[in-house]
Deep mutational scan, measured.
Amino acid sequence: FHVTIHVGDITFHIHGVSEEEVKKLEELVRRGADWREIKKTIEEIEK
């Protein structure tokens, strides 16, 4: 999957994300995680 996440003024683009990881990111966004937490999760996914 290709994912784009907008957190305030920050936009993250992630490529090659599995469905499971998409759900993890959706959950973070849904519970209102700040951009640092989302960035950390994205960095883990990209490894």
Rank of each mutant, 00 (worst) to 15 (best):
G8I: 02
E37S: 07
G16Y: 13
T4M: 06
D34H: 13
H2L: 12
K47H: 12
W35E: 06
G16N: 15
I10V: 13
I10R: 15
G16I: 11
K23A: 11
I45A: 03
E19V: 11
T4Y: 11
V17P: 04
G16V: 14
K24N: 07
L25D: 00
K47D: 07
E27D: 11
S18I: 04
K24D: 04
K23R: 11
E43S: 06
V17G: 03
V3T: 04
H6N: 07
H15R: 11
I45G: 02
H6C: 09
I42N: 00
I38N: 00
A33T: 05
R36V: 10
G32K: 06
L28M: 12
K24F: 10
E20Y: 15
E37V: 11
V7H: 08
V29T: 06
K47L: 12
K40H: 11
I38Y: 04
W35R: 03
E27W: 13
R36C: 08
K39T: 07
I10Q: 14
V3N: 02
H2P: 05
K24A: 09
E19G: 11
E46A: 12
K23P: 01
L25H: 00
T41M: 14
D9Q: 14
K39N: 05
F1P: 04
D34W: 05
F12K: 00
I10E: 05
E21G: 13
E19M: 12
R30V: 08
L28T: 02
V17A: 09
V22H: 05
E44K: 07
E44H: 08
E20K: 08
E37N: 03
G16H: 13
L25T: 00
D34S: 15
T4V: 10
H15Y: 15
I10Y: 14
H15I: 07
E37R: 02
H2V: 14
E37Y: 04
S18A: 06
F12I: 05
F1N: 08
T41A: 13
V3R: 03
H13F: 11
K23T: 10
E46H: 11
H2E: 10
G16A: 10
I42E: 00
H15E: 06
F1T: 06
V22D: 01
K47Q: 12
R30K: 11
H15G: 04
L25N: 00
W35Q: 04
E37P: 01
E43L: 12
E26C: 13
I42Y: 02
G16L: 12
G16M: 11
I42P: 00
G8R: 03
V29C: 09
S18V: 03
L28P: 00
L28Q: 04
E37L: 08
K23E: 09
G8A: 04
H6G: 03
D34P: 11
K40E: 12
I42S: 01
S18G: 09
H2I: 14
R36S: 15
H2C: 12
I42W: 04
G8L: 04
V29N: 02
E37G: 01
E21R: 03
E21P: 01
D9S: 14
H13L: 04
E21N: 15
E20T: 10
F12E: 00
A33L: 03
E26F: 15
E27G: 09
G16Q: 05
G8K: 03
E26K: 12
T4N: 03
E44T: 07
D34E: 07
I38M: 04
E21W: 15
T11P: 01
I5D: 00
D9H: 14
H15V: 09
A33G: 03
H2S: 12
R30G: 05
I14H: 01
E19H: 13
K40F: 11
T4H: 08
F12W: 13
H6K: 13
E21L: 09
K39F: 14
F12A: 01
T41G: 05
I45W: 15
R31V: 05
E37I: 08
A33N: 02
L25S: 00
I5V: 07
T4C: 05
E27A: 14
K39D: 03
G32Q: 06
G8E: 03
G32N: 08
L28S: 02
S18Y: 04
I38F: 12
E20H: 11
A33K: 03
K24Y: 09
G8Y: 04
K24G: 04
S18W: 03
V7K: 03
T4Q: 04
I45E: 01
G8C: 06
A33D: 02
G32R: 07
K24L: 14
T11N: 02
T11F: 07
I38W: 07
I14Q: 01
I5Y: 02
L25Q: 00
E27I: 10
G8F: 04
V22F: 13
R30Y: 10
R30M: 12
I42Q: 01
H6T: 15
K47S: 13
A33H: 02
R30W: 10
I45L: 10
V3M: 13
H15D: 05
E43K: 08
K24P: 01
E19Q: 10
F1K: 08
V22T: 05
G16D: 09
V17T: 03
D34Q: 06
